[in-house]
Write a protein that binds this DNA or RNA. Structure first.
Lengths: 158, 158
DNA sequence: CCAATTTATTTCAAGCTTGAAAATTCCAGC
DNA sequence: GCTGGAATTTTCAAGCTTGAAATAAATTGG
């Protein structure tokens, strides 16, 4: 009668639902705070930070499609974000020699400097926001999260 | 010299950063999949689901401001979402007797039925997406997440 | 009763996000 | 060389999100 009865494992499914709500509360809480600090203290946004982080790891630049692949966002999305980073003088597009369709996005020197500074703040913020966890807690959590990720959700960066 | 040196606890901060990346990967992976299923299989969105969930817990309805408080989103945001739920016949606004400024949003009977169905699917999806975790893993994770939440991030629903 | 403040909601501009459609360009096979 | 399909990016409409400004109504203090 019900769509997904799961009558024979009610406790496990409720336990996982409770877990999901906690997971969501923590990650969206941290994320909201990161967005706030990026905006209020540094005049930027999380999407721009994410794009800069990806470009920072690839000093020679990334094709737009590779960039959207790394970040797991749509092509049209990175178009707009790179547009804005370009307006701010933090990124630029360069043509790909052998392929007139493609563009390579890369950070400007100013973009590299800006990201280096942001990245240090970012690490400090995370250390602050997750500061209640001991290094041992963090390792335990990471191990359990790895187990959850093993196949349940497809892989990407890092 | 650096903004947040943390020179004397480099390992701990790196450990927490690694943890944050895993946490983000899992929660955004699950969230993306939830959005996809809500859209493709049920023609709705996660924000609408969240609003319906909050209203479902309060059969007599919630003032718009209480609703945005529960969900921790802006006032203007819920205005638009409730507008769309109303267009779909899933929610409605009723006047508050003693206060002509306030409005109470509540689910219609159709809205209650729709949410009841969605909620069952939702629980099944979570059970599926986190299925690699045993109930014991889930409890361990929940406990560690609770510790992280104890003060690092402010509290809300649940 | 009136003015000032507070409270509740909506409106608005800007940005993020997606999937689909459009515009280019490349390439494989003929 | 052509032609058709694949690949790359941009454009677009729709929706979500925010914070600030605008509206409107209630409350508080003379």
């Amino acid at each position: 009668m019900t769509p997904h009865p799961a009558r024979d494992r009610e406790p496990a499914s409720k336990e996982r639902l409770r877990l999901w709500l906690k997971l969501l509360k923590l990650s969206s809480g941290v994320e909201t705070e990161l967005r706030r600090r990026l905006r209020d203290d540094h005049g930027t946004t999380l999407p721009r930070f994410d794009v800069m982080a990806a470009l920072s790891r690839h000093p020679d630049g990334l094709k737009m499609s590779d960039l959207s692949g790394y970040l797991k966002v749509s092509n049209g999305n990175v178009t707009g974000i790179v547009d804005r980073l370009t307006e701010e003088g933090l990124a630029l597009r360069v043509a790909v020699p052998g392929d007139r369709r493609a563009q390579i996005a890369r950070l400007t020197p100013k973009g590299h400097r800006a990201f280096a500074s942001l990245a240090e703040y970012h690490e400090g913020w995370i250390d602050d926001l997750l500061g209640r966890l001991t290094p041992g807690d963090a390792r335990s959590l990471t191990r359990l999260l790895d187990k959850a990720l093993m196949c349940g959700v497809d892989d990407d960066l890092t």
